[in-house]
Amino acid sequence: MNAIRTVLAAGVMALLVSPAQAAGGGAHAPEHHWSHSDLFGTFDQAALRRGAQVYKEVCSACHGLRLVAYRNLMEIGFSEGEVKAIAAEKEVPAEPNDEGEVEMRPAIPADKFVSPFPNENAARAANGGAYPPDLSLIVKARPGGADYIHALLTGYKEEPPAGVTVPDGMNYNEYFAGNMIAMAPPLFEDGVQFADGTKATVEQMSEDVTVFLAWAAEPELEERKRMGIKVILFLLVLTGLLYVVKRRIWADVH
């Protein structure tokens, strides 16, 4: 009876704790296997590099990545020289000069990614009133995470389903809440020329940029899982030892 109670209690806890999804009109994103989702997960390094290229050449026109620093790219395989070059393409405000004027200077690796728009209002004005969100945390900020982002990018339909009218300036997307998204389909076949020769299909680019964005949101993921394995193994041994010690000490009471 007690065992049943314990299982029930555990199950009840699990139910209570799992977040209830608020559906809002978008289809549920299909599950997609990501190499970094596994217990021993690591990021697909090649995908990260290709994804960075997709971000830079496609997404960065409208979407910022302001929480990531250029130097962070060195963690995903870019060399110092490459990072300096990527940073130097953009300009940031310098310290005020002796006249008190703020001039612009090329970005250095220590700087954060420069956003395409100076503020939200400017971003909205340039995008028909819609705000292209910063992508630094987008994978953590949406229910469904990477599955959702990937589904969204590949979820545009040429024709909306029968009976659905798409308002001017909007696009039909199967997975976006409400199905009407202001962003036009951003990915086209061969839109990017990958350096490693991989064919740039929409599916491929979407996967790669999603992995890149997953890294951008959780750069600590690999270290976290590595540490987690060590901690759990350590705790299993320690708890096992403690159990044996407990039984020995309690032997004269039972």
Partner: peptide, 23 residues
């Protein structure tokens, strides 16, 4: 008796805690 039992219980708890934190 209860110091060691509490420590064992702590070990079990920490495993659950660690599963959430790391995974």
């Amino acid at each position: 008796y209860y110091t060691v039992k509490d420590m064992f219980g702590l070990g079990v708890f920490l495993i659950v805690f660690a599963l959430f934190i790391f995974f």
